[in-house]
Structures are given as C-alpha cells and as structure tokens.
C-alpha cells in the first residue's frame, strides 16, 4: 500500500503539468460578457415562446421541467415510472376483461346458449306486447337490418302502402 502511495505521488507530480495549461491570454476578460450577451439574445428570441408562456401561466410546470434539465437521471426515473404505470394499467384491464367474460359465461342461460343481442332485441317488444313487461328497445327501425341480413321477411314489419 505504501508503495502504491509513493507511486501515486509520482503520478501526482506528473498531473501537476495540467495545472500549467492555460487558455489564450485575455480569454477570461470577456467570458462573462459573452455569457450575458447570449442570455440576453436568448431572452429576446424566446419572448413569447411556448416555454415562456408555461413559465408565466404555470410556474409549477416550469419548475418541474427545470428539474429534468438539472438532473438528467430524473428523466429516466420518470420515464420508467410512466412505463410501469402503463404496464400496470394494461395488466389490470386485461384482468378485469377476463373477469367480466367469466361473469357473462356464468350468467348465460344454458338452455339458450346461442342467444344473441339481436334476438334479444326482437323478443323484447314481443314480451312487452304480451304481458306489459319492460320494453328494452323502442326503436323498430333497428329490426330492419335483421330482415336484410337473412333475406327473410320480418313478421313484425308491415310494408308501407301509398295507395288511397
């Protein structure tokens, strides 16, 4: 360890050369002036820009964006968080969908396994006429596509007559 330290001392002596590297003469005389000039130019160009408006109207959002600028690692963390949230949402949706399908399968009448929504809409008005039950569909036009689909005349549908 002692030997290593001594060797590092030699390295440190060598690294001292870096301290003697200097920029061109007068370089720092106008460095801050250039920075301030660029800030002024940027302010003039960005006046009325989207970010400026965000900063004026929603300072909290501007501060939020500024965090990303200062700490780039936060961008990664934020993006990861969003991805996890999205994945969680997809997983929950898939789970809910599976649960609903199962529930529908359980509630289906085993005697009429092929009962569809369309047939339900046909039988509903019949039930309503017969016994005063609850009418599900009040739109007779919705029945028309059924006749067209199967090429059969609908018994509930009377063709219009224009004769006097």
């Amino acid at each position: 360890m002692k030997e290593n330290e001594q060797n590092f001392d030699e390295l440190k002596k060598l690294l001292k050369l870096k301290q003697h590297e200097i920029p061109p003469p007068g370089y720092f005389n106008n460095f801050s002036g250039k920075v301030v000039a660029r800030i002024r130019a940027g302010e003039a160009a960005n006046r009325g820009s989207a970010y400026e408006q965000v900063e004026t109207h929603s300072p909290w959002l501007a501060r939020f964006i500024a965090i990303f600028e200062i700490k780039p690692s936060v961008i990664g963390a934020f993006a990861t968080g969003l991805c996890l949230l999205f994945a969680l949402g997809v997983a929950l949706t898939a789970k809910d969908g599976a649960g609903t399908n199962g529930l529908m399968a359980e509630t289906q009448d085993p005697a009429a396994p092929a009962m569809s929504l369309a047939s339900a809409s046909i039988t509903a008005p019949l039930l309503a006429d017969g016994g005063g039950g609850i009418q599900i569909s009040t739109n007779p036009v919705s029945l028309q596509p059924m006749a067209n689909t199967f090429g059969q005349a609908n018994p509930l549908f009377q063709p219009a007559s224009f004769g006097h």
Partner: peptide
C-alpha cells in the same frame, strides 16, 4: 452551463 444555470435559477 452558465446559460442553463441562469434559466434554471428559479429552481
């Protein structure tokens, strides 16, 4: 770096 620091100074 100095320009960015100025624009983020509020934070």
């Amino acid at each position: 770096a100095f320009i960015k620091a100025y624009s983020a100074l509020k934070s």
